[in-house]
């Protein structure tokens, strides 16, 4: 794990060396800020429900944009060879890159703490759902990062990595809203697959082990897929 931390440090730093981090963070804050505060005063309720309702959709665009370069860039520049011939295991590499993406997500969420603080000044804010919401946001960011990382390890083209990652994340977000198109027998299973469904549970302030397990299993599947994809390349 010590070696994974070196890779994490390098990846995290390189986000902030290039303009990527600043662009993604500004767009994220603009979009969430605009959509959260526009109807906020109309509802006249001191909660962050609108912010968290929006988050899965925004994350399905933003997270793949953050993860798209993690492997695709290395594959196209050729530094992938340098990476693999250093004395590190594939596990170290995958973990380092995954953590970089998750911590970046956390850094991106930090400025949004201004929303609950503002809201709590305006009215009586219930902090339970807020804490749950942020916890869920990190889990969601982790799950989407794992998916983005996996897609990125499959192609040397960053645009493909972005679009494919976005499609998968968006699909997971919307799947439980599409259920009325589907046969009755599949409802239970497919409903369980919906990332939004689990996220909304947590963001209500109800921390259920089933929801946490869902996000952790998506992480596991994504990371394991990445590991396999890298092994296959040898």
């Amino acid at each position: 794990m010590r070696k994974a931390s070196h890779i994490f440090k390098k990846e995290f730093k390189s986000y902030f060396v290039s303009p990527i981090a600043y662009i993604v963070i500004s767009i994220f804050l603009l979009v969430t800020g605009w959509f959260f505060f526009t109807p906020f005063f109309l509802f006249n309720q001191a909660n962050l429900r609108n912010f968290f309702a929006l988050l899965p959709v925004v994350f399905s665009f933003v997270v793949p944009a953050v993860t798209m370069r993690l492997f695709s860039e290395e594959l196209s520049v050729g530094s992938y060879e340098v990476l693999l011939t250093m004395p590190v295991t594939i596990f170290d590499i995958v973990m380092g890159k995954f953590l970089a993406s998750v911590v970046f997500m956390v850094a991106m969420l930090m400025p949004t703490l201004a929303y609950p603080i503002t809201v709590s000044l305006l009215g009586q804010l219930d902090w339970g759902p807020v804490v749950g919401g942020y916890m869920g946001a990190v889990l969601l960011g982790g799950a989407f990062s794992a998916i983005g990382l996996f897609v990125s390890s499959l192609t040397r083209n960053q645009i493909i990595a972005f679009i494919a990652g976005m499609a998968i994340c968006f699909g997971l977000t919307l799947i439980d809203k599409m259920l009325f198109f589907l046969p009755q027998s599949l409802l239970g299973i497919l409903g369980y697959l919906g990332a939004d469904y689990h996220f909304q549970n947590i963001s209500k302030g109800i921390v259920d082990s089933r929801d946490i397990l869902y996000f952790l299993s998506v992480c596991f599947v994504g990371l394991y897929g990445t590991h396999l994809a890298m092994q296959e390349k040898r």
């Binding site: 070696k3 070196h6 440090k9 050729g78 250093m86 004395p87």
Partner: peptide, 21 residues
């Protein structure tokens, strides 16, 4: 010599030194 293009030479060597423990 494929390398990380946006890193400074020093940062790169420093990173390698870290990974090489």
């Amino acid at each position: 010599a494929p390398l990380y293009h946006d890193m400074l030479a020093y940062d790169y060597l420093n990173y390698i030194a870290d990974v090489r423990e």
